[in-house]
Design a protein around this nucleic acid. Sequence first.
DNA 1: AACCTGACTTCGG
DNA 2: TCCGAAGCCAGGT
Length: 106
Amino acid sequence: MRTFSQEIIEIIREIPAGKVCSYGAIAARAGNPRAARQVVRVLRACSETEGLPWWRVVNARGTISLKPGQGFEEQRDRLRAEGVMFDAAGRIDLAEHRWQPDWMEE
DNA sequence: AACCTGACTTCGG
DNA sequence: TCCGAAGCCAGGT
């Protein structure tokens, strides 16, 4: 069977350039809306080896969770390179860049 | 089978 | 809107 983590990996692979998705939304699509932290584990464990577009994953507020000097700059630059804009507070306009906003409709 | 880990999320003040 | 505390979870040890 496919593990929850494997589902997460596949979902992240589907995020198109210029779009972003939150940890929670990915977890929700993988089957458990409360397993956002598991998405973090997956990224830490295999964003490199699996060649995932890890920079397209941000937190629910539309900001980068990585800390300066710890990957923040790289993620910001990679997103900018795909046309994602940040406001003065460092927030991404989710209304425009969130991937498949219809997922979470209830 | 507990215990630990986190790049999270939600809620209350 | 911002901040801290408290939830929450799957996989590795």
